[in-house]
Protein backbone atom coordinates (compact mmCIF):
# COMPACT_ATOMS: atom_id res chain seq x y z
CA UNK A 1 0.00 0.00 0.00
CA UNK A 2 2.80 2.42 0.98
CA UNK A 3 4.67 1.49 -2.21
CA UNK A 4 1.63 2.19 -4.32
CA UNK A 5 1.10 5.58 -2.62
CA UNK A 6 4.73 6.50 -3.32
CA UNK A 7 4.32 5.60 -6.97
CA UNK A 8 1.22 7.77 -7.27
CA UNK A 9 3.03 10.64 -5.57
CA UNK A 10 5.95 10.37 -8.00
CA UNK A 11 3.71 10.19 -11.03
CA UNK A 12 1.83 13.25 -9.80
CA UNK A 13 5.12 15.12 -9.38
CA UNK A 14 6.21 14.19 -12.90
CA UNK A 15 2.89 15.41 -14.30
CA UNK A 16 3.19 18.72 -12.42
CA UNK A 17 6.76 19.09 -13.72
CA UNK A 18 5.64 18.52 -17.30
CA UNK A 19 2.68 20.90 -16.93
CA UNK A 20 4.90 23.66 -15.51
CA UNK A 21 7.46 23.13 -18.29
CA UNK A 22 4.76 23.42 -20.97
CA UNK A 23 3.22 26.57 -19.46
CA UNK A 24 6.65 28.20 -19.15
CA UNK A 25 7.33 27.38 -22.77
CA UNK A 26 4.03 29.01 -23.89
CA UNK A 27 4.78 32.11 -21.85
CA UNK A 28 8.28 32.29 -23.32
CA UNK A 29 7.02 31.94 -26.87
CA UNK A 30 4.59 34.81 -26.36
CA UNK A 31 7.31 37.04 -24.91
CA UNK A 32 9.77 36.20 -27.67
CA UNK A 33 7.24 36.94 -30.38
CA UNK A 34 6.47 40.28 -28.80
CA UNK A 35 10.21 41.08 -28.50
CA UNK A 36 10.87 40.14 -32.09
CA UNK A 37 7.99 42.20 -33.36
CA UNK A 38 9.21 45.23 -31.38
CA UNK A 39 12.73 44.75 -32.68
CA UNK A 40 11.48 44.50 -36.21
CA UNK A 41 9.60 47.79 -35.77
CA UNK A 42 12.72 49.41 -34.36
CA UNK A 43 14.89 48.31 -37.18
CA UNK A 44 12.43 49.43 -39.81
CA UNK A 45 12.31 53.04 -38.99
CA UNK A 46 12.69 54.00 -35.35
CA UNK A 47 16.07 52.62 -34.40
CA UNK A 48 17.61 55.95 -33.60
CA UNK A 49 14.87 56.99 -31.23
CA UNK A 50 13.55 53.91 -29.57
CA UNK A 51 14.74 53.72 -26.02
CA UNK A 52 14.80 57.15 -24.57
CA UNK A 53 18.59 57.25 -24.40
CA UNK A 54 18.91 59.81 -27.14
CA UNK A 55 20.24 63.09 -25.76
CA UNK A 56 18.69 66.48 -26.46
CA UNK A 57 21.73 67.24 -28.56
CA UNK A 58 21.08 64.16 -30.65
CA UNK A 59 17.43 65.07 -31.10
CA UNK A 60 18.41 68.55 -32.24
CA UNK A 61 20.84 67.20 -34.80
CA UNK A 62 18.96 64.12 -35.82
CA UNK A 63 17.61 65.58 -39.05
CA UNK A 64 21.01 66.89 -40.05
CA UNK A 65 22.92 63.64 -39.49
CA UNK A 66 23.94 60.92 -41.88
CA UNK A 67 22.27 57.93 -40.25
CA UNK A 68 20.63 55.57 -42.67
CA UNK A 69 18.64 52.43 -42.29
CA UNK A 70 20.10 49.87 -44.63
CA UNK A 71 18.73 46.34 -44.67
CA UNK A 72 16.14 46.54 -41.96
CA UNK A 73 18.54 45.19 -39.35
CA UNK A 74 21.49 47.52 -39.20
CA UNK A 75 21.78 51.22 -38.61
CA UNK A 76 24.54 52.46 -40.85
CA UNK A 77 26.32 55.77 -40.71
CA UNK A 78 28.02 57.13 -43.82
CA UNK A 79 29.87 60.43 -44.07
CA UNK A 80 27.69 63.42 -44.94
CA UNK A 81 28.11 65.87 -47.75
CA UNK A 82 31.47 67.45 -48.65
CA UNK A 83 32.59 70.86 -47.54
CA UNK A 84 29.80 71.78 -45.10
CA UNK A 85 29.94 68.48 -43.22
CA UNK A 86 30.19 68.89 -39.46
CA UNK A 87 31.21 65.87 -37.39
CA UNK A 88 29.34 67.22 -34.40
CA UNK A 89 26.07 66.65 -36.25
CA UNK A 90 26.50 62.95 -35.62
CA UNK A 91 29.13 62.69 -32.87
CA UNK A 92 30.43 64.36 -29.76
CA UNK A 93 33.93 64.11 -28.37
CA UNK A 94 34.68 62.46 -25.03
CA UNK A 95 38.45 62.82 -25.52
CA UNK A 96 40.16 65.56 -27.50
CA UNK A 97 38.40 67.59 -30.15
CA UNK A 98 37.81 67.94 -33.88
CA UNK A 99 41.06 69.91 -34.20
CA UNK A 100 43.08 66.82 -33.22
CA UNK A 101 41.82 64.83 -36.19
CA UNK A 102 41.00 67.44 -38.84
CA UNK A 103 37.99 65.64 -40.38
CA UNK A 104 37.08 66.06 -44.03
CA UNK A 105 34.88 64.17 -46.41
CA UNK A 106 36.40 63.04 -49.70
CA UNK A 107 35.07 61.00 -52.58
CA UNK A 108 36.74 57.78 -53.66
CA UNK A 109 37.27 56.79 -57.30
CA UNK A 110 34.24 54.54 -57.02
CA UNK A 111 32.11 57.46 -55.81
CA UNK A 112 31.92 56.45 -52.13
CA UNK A 113 32.06 59.24 -49.59
CA UNK A 114 34.86 58.70 -47.12
CA UNK A 115 35.56 60.44 -43.83
CA UNK A 116 39.27 61.15 -43.72
CA UNK A 117 40.83 61.94 -40.37
CA UNK A 118 44.35 63.26 -39.94
CA UNK A 119 45.47 62.56 -36.39
CA UNK A 120 48.04 64.89 -34.89
CA UNK A 121 49.16 62.60 -32.06
CA UNK A 122 46.77 63.80 -29.36
CA UNK A 123 44.27 61.08 -28.43
CA UNK A 124 40.71 61.78 -29.54
CA UNK A 125 37.52 59.81 -29.20
CA UNK A 126 34.25 60.68 -30.87
CA UNK A 127 31.00 58.87 -30.12
CA UNK A 128 27.42 58.87 -31.36
CA UNK A 129 24.97 60.85 -29.27
CA UNK A 130 22.92 57.79 -28.33
CA UNK A 131 23.83 55.32 -25.57
CA UNK A 132 23.65 51.55 -26.03
CA UNK A 133 23.74 48.43 -23.89
CA UNK A 134 24.33 45.19 -25.79
CA UNK A 135 25.69 46.35 -29.09
CA UNK A 136 27.36 45.22 -32.32
CA UNK A 137 29.58 47.57 -34.32
CA UNK A 138 31.07 47.17 -37.77
CA UNK A 139 33.30 49.62 -39.57
CA UNK A 140 35.22 49.69 -42.78
CA UNK A 141 38.51 51.51 -42.17
CA UNK A 142 41.77 52.12 -43.93
CA UNK A 143 44.70 52.57 -41.53
CA UNK A 144 47.58 52.17 -43.98
CA UNK A 145 48.63 55.77 -43.45
CA UNK A 146 48.23 55.71 -39.69
CA UNK A 147 50.77 54.90 -37.01
CA UNK A 148 49.19 54.19 -33.68
CA UNK A 149 46.11 52.58 -32.20
CA UNK A 150 42.57 52.72 -33.51
CA UNK A 151 39.90 51.67 -31.04
CA UNK A 152 36.25 50.90 -31.51
CA UNK A 153 34.83 51.96 -28.17
CA UNK A 154 31.53 51.09 -26.54
CA UNK A 155 29.86 51.40 -23.13
CA UNK A 156 31.77 54.68 -22.99
CA UNK A 157 30.95 57.10 -20.19
CA UNK A 158 34.01 59.30 -20.32
CA UNK A 159 37.75 59.17 -20.97
CA UNK A 160 38.32 56.91 -17.95
CA UNK A 161 35.50 54.42 -18.39
CA UNK A 162 34.88 52.55 -21.61
CA UNK A 163 35.32 49.20 -23.34
CA UNK A 164 37.20 48.70 -26.58
CA UNK A 165 38.53 46.56 -29.39
CA UNK A 166 41.77 48.07 -30.63
CA UNK A 167 43.97 47.39 -33.62
CA UNK A 168 47.58 48.38 -34.07
CA UNK A 169 49.69 46.94 -36.90
CA UNK A 170 48.11 43.49 -37.06
CA UNK A 171 47.55 43.19 -33.30
CA UNK A 172 44.10 43.24 -31.79
CA UNK A 173 43.34 43.86 -28.15
CA UNK A 174 39.99 43.44 -26.41
CA UNK A 175 39.54 45.14 -23.07
CA UNK A 176 38.12 47.87 -20.92
CA UNK A 177 39.24 50.97 -19.11
CA UNK A 178 37.72 51.29 -15.66
CA UNK A 179 38.57 54.39 -13.64
CA UNK A 180 41.50 54.96 -15.96
CA UNK A 181 42.97 51.46 -15.48
CA UNK A 182 43.26 49.14 -18.47
CA UNK A 183 42.06 45.55 -18.14
CA UNK A 184 42.88 43.41 -21.20
CA UNK A 185 40.39 40.56 -21.71
CA UNK A 186 42.04 38.98 -24.76
CA UNK A 187 44.67 39.57 -27.44
CA UNK A 188 45.10 38.26 -30.97
CA UNK A 189 46.82 38.81 -34.30
CA UNK A 190 45.52 39.21 -37.80
CA UNK A 191 46.89 39.80 -41.27
CA UNK A 192 46.48 43.53 -41.86
CA UNK A 193 46.81 43.47 -45.68
CA UNK A 194 46.65 46.54 -47.89
CA UNK A 195 42.91 46.76 -48.25
CA UNK A 196 40.06 48.18 -46.24
CA UNK A 197 39.70 46.43 -42.92
CA UNK A 198 36.25 45.28 -41.86
CA UNK A 199 36.58 45.64 -38.10
CA UNK A 200 33.70 44.38 -35.97
CA UNK A 201 32.91 43.96 -32.32
CA UNK A 202 30.07 42.55 -30.32
CA UNK A 203 29.21 43.14 -26.69
CA UNK A 204 26.46 40.74 -25.63
CA UNK A 205 25.96 40.53 -21.87
CA UNK A 206 29.23 39.33 -20.41
CA UNK A 207 30.59 38.12 -23.77
CA UNK A 208 32.82 40.40 -25.82
CA UNK A 209 34.34 39.67 -29.21
CA UNK A 210 36.52 41.36 -31.80
CA UNK A 211 36.37 40.30 -35.45
CA UNK A 212 38.17 41.02 -38.67
CA UNK A 213 35.50 40.28 -41.26
CA UNK A 214 33.85 37.10 -40.04
CA UNK A 215 36.91 35.77 -38.26
CA UNK A 216 36.92 35.93 -34.47
CA UNK A 217 40.28 37.33 -33.36
CA UNK A 218 39.55 38.08 -29.71
CA UNK A 219 36.93 36.72 -27.32
CA UNK A 220 36.76 37.66 -23.66
CA UNK A 221 34.40 37.82 -20.72
CA UNK A 222 33.75 40.41 -18.08
CA UNK A 223 31.02 42.01 -16.00
CA UNK A 224 28.32 43.81 -17.89
CA UNK A 225 28.95 47.55 -17.86
CA UNK A 226 26.46 50.41 -17.73
CA UNK A 227 24.95 51.54 -21.05
CA UNK A 228 27.23 53.98 -22.79
CA UNK A 229 28.21 55.62 -26.03
CA UNK A 230 29.80 53.93 -29.02
CA UNK A 231 32.36 55.41 -31.37
CA UNK A 232 35.97 55.53 -32.46
CA UNK A 233 39.16 56.56 -30.70
CA UNK A 234 42.46 57.39 -32.35
CA UNK A 235 45.79 57.55 -30.58
CA UNK A 236 48.60 58.13 -33.04
CA UNK A 237 49.59 60.11 -36.09
CA UNK A 238 48.62 59.92 -39.74
CA UNK A 239 45.55 59.37 -41.87
CA UNK A 240 42.60 57.13 -41.07
CA UNK A 241 39.80 56.73 -43.61
CA UNK A 242 36.34 55.57 -42.58
CA UNK A 243 33.84 54.43 -45.17
CA UNK A 244 30.99 53.41 -42.89
CA UNK A 245 30.09 52.63 -39.33
CA UNK A 246 27.27 50.23 -38.58
CA UNK A 247 25.61 49.80 -35.23
CA UNK A 248 23.21 47.08 -34.19
CA UNK A 249 21.39 47.09 -30.90
CA UNK A 250 21.60 43.49 -29.72
CA UNK A 251 18.29 42.50 -28.24
CA UNK A 252 17.85 40.40 -25.17
CA UNK A 253 15.47 37.51 -25.68
Amino acid sequence: MIKSNNSILILLMVLIFLAVSCSQRDKKDATTEKGESEMSNDMHGQAAEHDGHMSEDAKRHHDMGSMQMSDGENMTWNPGNGSDYKMTNDFHFIIGSEENINPRVIQSDSGDKILQLTANGSPSAFVFHQAYGNVGMATSVDVKGFEGTLKLIHHAENADNYEFVSINAGNMKLGRIVNGKENVLDKGNFEAGDEWINLRLSAAGTHFKGYIGNETITHGHGDKMKDGYVGIMLDGTGIVSIKSLGIVKLEDE
Binding site: G136, A138, S202, T206
Partner: peptide, 20 residues
Protein backbone atom coordinates in the same frame (compact mmCIF):
# COMPACT_ATOMS: atom_id res chain seq x y z
CA UNK B 1 33.30 25.94 -32.23
CA UNK B 2 32.08 29.32 -30.94
CA UNK B 3 35.15 31.10 -32.31
CA UNK B 4 35.15 29.21 -35.61
CA UNK B 5 31.62 29.90 -36.82
CA UNK B 6 30.20 33.14 -38.18
CA UNK B 7 27.53 34.55 -35.87
CA UNK B 8 25.30 37.40 -37.08
CA UNK B 9 25.06 40.31 -34.66
CA UNK B 10 21.48 39.50 -33.70
CA UNK B 11 22.55 35.99 -32.70
CA UNK B 12 25.29 37.12 -30.32
CA UNK B 13 23.06 37.38 -27.24
CA UNK B 14 21.73 33.87 -27.88
CA UNK B 15 25.28 32.59 -28.44
CA UNK B 16 26.36 34.11 -25.12
CA UNK B 17 23.40 32.57 -23.29
CA UNK B 18 23.95 29.19 -24.94
CA UNK B 19 27.54 29.31 -23.75
CA UNK B 20 26.50 30.33 -20.21
Amino acid sequence: AIDEVAIPFQGEVTAGKHSD
